[in-house]
Design a protein around this nucleic acid. Structure first.
Lengths: 246, 246
DNA sequence: CGCTTCGTTGACGTCTATCAATTCATGTGG
DNA sequence: CCACATGAATTGATAGACGTCAACGAAGCG
């Protein structure tokens, strides 16, 4: 099994978390052609304004979407773990207004829009599955807006850790209280909208209060329930249990 | 022409801003059945956890999506002007994890999922258009994350006004520098993640610096370019000029 | 005319940013 | 194995943005 096939299997598994697909439809996903690539830490995969003709499936490592301000400050708007397409939406919106960057050395698979497009148009149910995937990511984004707008730094960091824990668990990449999150404190800061210094202080609180351990890249949580409590974390938005429609 | 038909026409126009649809496909949208309803100011249209079987098209008024914290604080995650479906995504994700509320007396049209579902499955190109619509809203959400995470209160308010101005203009509901935004300062505060008191002070700055006038419900902007400058506003994310694919 | 909602103002407290060291971990070459 | 370079984590002191509390003014309405 090639690495491309392995990644497509992960991607399919992720789709199946939300959507029901026939075996024919599943096969179409698994047979998508892709071009593997290795991306170095901190290298951009997509830049703002760029028009792409392929989507990017994460095979290993961590990939992030960013909004960048003129003063150089960055705000992460999405984090993508292996098995996720970090810009499936580019199929219907090929001009990016953000950048996508590798936060670690990463391997990815580029899947030409042409084939995704074809798959969607021939199989409405697949188009709907792609749509649903986009909406799942959008729900996460909505939750981030709530966090950034109305929670303090501690709760934001705690929320991010809860979210990434559940997402890793759902993807079969660890458990909610023990998983990889290969981010530096600076990258964490960009994700929760505070300074690196303040993230550091925040992590100290979480270590003391919720038994958090964070030795890059490994996150451990002794008292997950308490962490979720601090974060006011309600997993509903991830829609991980609900069987999809269709 | 009934009010339902008028609203569907607005909705179609909005879809056509991003997607190309055949006249047959356009007819399907225009022929969608819908049930008109009037919603009073501050009344919830959808509550968190609710499973809906219809989408809600805004015909008049302003409608918002909210994330609510346990201490009662609210964070708006989306604003919807007439012609927009405020939860088209509910077709593929019927269980809401947020609430949708009318910010003014509003009239809406409920469109049963059944018909949207049917339209999407029979017309992959429509499914793609719905998907693209979702991604357009998601791009806005991403921008909000950037604003909340990395800009000060003045820039956030300015950005929101620029955004709503362009959206109204694109929808044919005014110009970017003169349009209706029937929100109280408290509702504005919920949208930009600050306190009402601070929004008030922020508006005073914008009145002085950018010639903003805001006599509910009317917004006027004397120096739009300067306002956009203050907001670091780049309209790209709205994708208003690009002809869609397909 | 009193009631209610919204907008405005002032004083004060807290959270987070900023600036600048310092420590720690890791890896490389001698 | 040690000296040194590099990136990350940590700490302290200070400043600024925004929140909180409380009061007051303005406008619409029965």
């Amino acid at each position: 099994m090639s690495s491309t096939q392995r990644s497509l299997q992960l991607f399919l598994d992720m789709l199946l978390l939300h959507s029901k697909l026939s075996s024919a439809e599943q096969k179409i996903v698994l047979d998508l052609p892709g071009k593997p690539a290795r991306i170095r830490n901190r290298v951009d995969i997509v830049s703002p304004g760029e028009v792409v003709d392929h989507a990017c499936l994460v095979a290993s490592g961590l990939v992030a979407r960013f909004d960048q301000m003129r003063n150089g400050h960055r705000q992460t708007t999405a984090l993508h773990i292996p098995g996720e397409m970090c810009d499936l939406h580019s199929v219907v919106q090929p001009k990016a207004s953000w950048s996508i960057t590798a936060l670690t050395d990463a391997s990815v698979v580029f899947v030409p829009h042409k084939f995704l497009w074809d798959a969607a148009l021939r199989n409405p149910n697949l188009a709907v599955a792609f749509w649903r995937d986009g909406m799942a990511q959008s729900a996460i984004l909505g939750k981030w807006v709530g966090n950034l707008g109305r929670k303090n730094a501690t709760a934001r960091v705690a929320h991010l850790i809860c979210e990434m824990g559940l997402r890793n668990e759902a993807a079969g990449l660890g458990t909610r209280s023990n998983f990889d999150l290969p981010m530096t404190q600076e990258q964490l800061a960009d994700a929760v909208g505070v300074t690196p210094v303040h993230v550091n202080r925040t992590l100290q609180v979480l270590r003391k209060d919720a038994g958090l351990t964070f030795k890059r890249p490994r996150v451990g949580v002794e008292d997950w329930t308490h962490l979720a409590e601090l974060a006011e974390f309600d997993p509903d938005f991830l829609q991980l249990r609900t069987g999809g429609l269709t």
